[in-house]
Design a protein around this nucleic acid. Structure first.
Length: 107
DNA sequence: GCGTTGACCCAAA
DNA sequence: ATTTGGGCCAACG
């Protein structure tokens, strides 16, 4: 297995792990999977994201990617994730609960 | 090796 | 809030 393929799988796994009603940013996934860059996450989704809950992946500011905005927002709305216009409340829905990162105290 | 093109991110103006 | 510019990584011609 090449490193590239493992990364590809890790990214997919991470996205599969996003619980319903929660969302994550490309940057978060990239960080969790140790991806070299968030762009790679986008590429993976573009190529092999058809069977993944890609609609739970948003950009850093809480807005979905331009071309998917309509579909993505519709799906999220169906899961109970309401958005103001195109922006989703990351503070509310961001997937940070089950992240295995060490928590430096609080705040 | 170089220029282009992305489901990106951030800081500054 | 929007635009601009820089950084980022991989794939393609």
């Amino acid at each position: 297995m090449s490193v590239d393929e493992e990364l590809h799988e890790r990214v997919r796994e991470a996205i599969k792990s996003i619980p319903e009603g929660s969302v994550a940013t490309y940057g978060d996934i990239a960080d969790l999977t140790k991806a070299p860059s968030p762009r790679l996450v986008g590429k993976v989704l573009a190529e092999d994201g058809h069977d993944l809950p890609w609609h739970r992946v948003l950009r850093a500011n809480g807005t979905p990617a331009p071309h998917l905005a309509g579909e993505q927002l519709a799906r999220l709305r169906a899961e109970g994730v309401l958005a103001d216009g195109d922006k989703v409340d990351l503070r509310r829905h961001r997937w940070a609960d089950v992240v295995p990162e060490e928590e430096p105290g609080l705040f």
